[in-house]
Every structure is written in structure tokens, then in C-alpha cells.
Design a protein around this nucleic acid. Sequence first.
RNA 1: CGGGGUGUAGUAUAUCGGUAGUACGUCUGCUUUGGGAGCAGAUAGGCCGAGUUCGAUUCUCGGCACCCCGACCA
Length: 415
Amino acid sequence: MRQSKFFIKTRKEAPADEVAKNAKLLMRAGFVDKLQAGVYTYLPLGLRVLKKIEQIIREEMNKEEGQEILMPSLHPKELWQTTGRWDSMDDLYKVTDASGRENALGATHEEVVVPLVKQFISSYRDLPFAVYQFQNKFRMELRAKSGILRGREFIMKDMYSFHRTEEDMKAYYERMKKSYAHIFERMGIGARTYLTYASGGSFSKYSHEFQTLTEAGEDVIYICDTCHIAINKEIIDDQKHMCPICGNEDLRTETSVEVGNIFELKTKYSAPFNLTYKDESGGDVTVLMGCYGIGLGRVLGTVVEVYGDDKGLVWPRAIAPFTVHLVEIPSADANVRAEAEKLYNELTARGVEVLWDDRDLRAGEKFAESDLLGIPFRVVVSEKTLAGETVEVKERITGEVSMRTRDELFKLFAV
RNA sequence: CGGGGUGUAGUAUAUCGGUAGUACGUCUGCUUUGGGAGCAGAUAGGCCGAGUUCGAUUCUCGGCACCCCGACCA
């Protein structure tokens, strides 16, 4: 991608009233734009990151035999009345159309997925299975805050699993625990993301959250370093101040962001909709459910909080918008342009995603902007590098600079 | 929803009850060319409504928006 043709504009200064690091950096670097509090547009760079995150999750959900679907955002009131949440969920957006019909904007999708699968589940032979989607969620937060971390509209991966027995449900739940850990590992935040015991909300005693350590977090968790798990402060009174696994009482207190949450729904939503199957003896049995969420924007924002530094964004390679920022320092010597173009073509041919800064700007401005964008590798082509038949490679995350021949460069990105 | 703060150009800001200034950006020209460069010129602004006043961007009231603290939060 040629930067001269790319829809992006960076700023030297962040909007004055933004305090959240993720909002400041993402807006300065032109990854997102704020339409209103808690409601953001993803610009091309930000969308590339979001899509990388989405694809990692998709791959892992498919591994767990999840099947991707896409449910609507506009939900008939009646479905939400069936579960009682039309009245009980106070952050539900409700809209009324010209004919007076009332709808909810989907805050979550149990009310849609259960009636949906009811059409397909009739026998024990139809179970188990799981469906998931990436879809906008709407929540009427009284106070949107922390930049992109707590929005009123945001994209979430939500998966719903359906089972015959509690054992089967629990077994799948355990699989998802591992799957989630792997997902966050792939995204570069595994080391600081903890499986966390949390409140089960209105349908079970406990659930599990995945909490990533960062000062920007809204949650307080207690970490057991022996087990590498944590307990959310919201339930610590029930648990006493003790690790539920090993009994360790020497817990470390940290602030964190909830990047994922999994629940054993059991029959909480299948029962109101009378979602049942026929067992071997012909009896009707209520289907058991689990649900598993990850907020994509929240993951993105959390990565910014974790990795961003005083110069700007820093992206882990797996979710970076591009792998290489090819920075061409403008020169009267036409060979510089030729070399940059050649390198761009060669890298691209090797499947490397390259953003080529081909604009006629001064070096200083280009470098500062490159740091701000946070692409993992900056490759500089200039009169200097041309003379030495090498290119300069700077790793954004470490700041390490090295001179490399093109072969050495290609090796860096060999799959 | 309770409390607090802030609304001036695309962005960041200054001043002032009396013609609203600066920097960055953007546009033109020249210079410069490895860390957001320089010179000259141009462009563009008082959140909305009411009130006080000869005159309001400034003072008062109301609204709206945004940010922060709290409450809330699958």
C-alpha cells in the first residue's frame, strides 16, 4: 500500500479532552475517529488491526468446531420479554418505529440464538454444537469512558454452545478456557492475561473472565502466582482472600481489563424458550448452554494500553496493520525511489504486508510518524542505505536498529 | 443517574464587556532534506437559545456536547 494514496491523517497532538491513552494514540495516529462518546469509526489502519484480531478468533473458534453465523441487531421486543430482560436490563437500547412496534438493539444475542436453534434441535442426535458471530452490540452505558474500552456500540465475538448434559457442557467450557488463553497468547497479551474467577451474573454462581493487566483497567483482581490465575474483586468476599485452586493466601493485587468472559448458562435461556430435545427414551430434556464472549475493540484498546509508549502505538506482529513500514527518504537521486519500489514489490511478492511511505516529506516527520503508527518493522531506504547496498531496519518494540542486506531482510519475514 | 470540569479556526491554545491573536494543519512560492525544518503570502473560529447591556465570545440563566470521579456494567 502506497501511503500517498492511503486514507490516513496523523496529528501531532491528541484531542485536549481525551485522557485515555488508547483514545489519544488511536486518534492521533488515525486508526479511529470518535463519532460521539463511546461510539467510534474504524479508519483503514484501525480496521486492519480489528480484522487481524477477528481472524485469529475465527481460526480458533473454528478449531473448536464453532460455526460462524451472523444474527441481526434489531430484536423484537417479545423475545426479550420472554426472558424477562426487556424490563430488567437497564442498559438495553429500545427503539420504536413509526408503527409503534418496539425493538431492542442487541446487547447480546441469547434471545435470538435460542429461538433460532430451536428450529434445528429436536433429537439428542442434534447435539452438541456451537455457533458464533462477530456482531455489533449496543449497550446504553450511562457513562462511556476509557476511550475505546467501554463503548455504547462495539463489536463482539459471541459464541453459544448447546449440550445434552452438564458434563458435556462443562467439558466444552474447559475447551474454551484453553482456546481463549491461546487466542490472547497469539495476540501478544498472553503473558499478562489471567484466567479470572468472577461473578456469574444472573445465571450461575461463577463465570470466568480473562483479565489483562494494565493500569487503564477498570477491574481489580487478586493474582495467585502459583496457579497463574486471578480472582475478581467483585467476588473476593465470597471466596475469602484465597486462591480457589491451591488455597494460597498470598495474593497480588492488580488492575486489569476484562478482554473475554465465558459463562455456563445451563438452562437459563433455553428454559424460557422451551428449547428441548428428545433423549433416547423419547423424553423431552431441556438443552444446556454455554456462552463465550470477546470484545474486539476492547482487545485492540487493551493492546494499545499495554504496548503503547511515549512515541506512539506499538503493535505485536500478529495483529499489526502492516508488518513493514517502508520509509523512503526523498532524494534527488532517482535510484532511491527505484530501490524503494523494487523492495516494496519484492516484499509484497513474498506475502509481507508493506506500507510504503512514498510521500515527499522530510525524514524527521516520516520517522516521527512511523513511530506513531507502531508498525513492527521500519525499513529505511535512502541515499545512505543505497551507498552501502543495505537497508536500515528498526524494530519498533525494542528500538533496535540494524543494517541488513536484502537477503537478510527477506529472511526476517520468511514464513 | 449524582458530583466536578470544559466548550474560541481542522487541531492545540491566547486575550478581551468595544475590529478575536498565536502555533500546527491546509493552499501558493522559494529555501531546506536522517527525527514533526525555515522565510514570505493566503485560508479558516466564539456550541445552541434566552436575558442583562448602547454593545456579549466575555456576565447571568437554560439547553446540548465532551472529559473526569462515583454509581451502574455479560
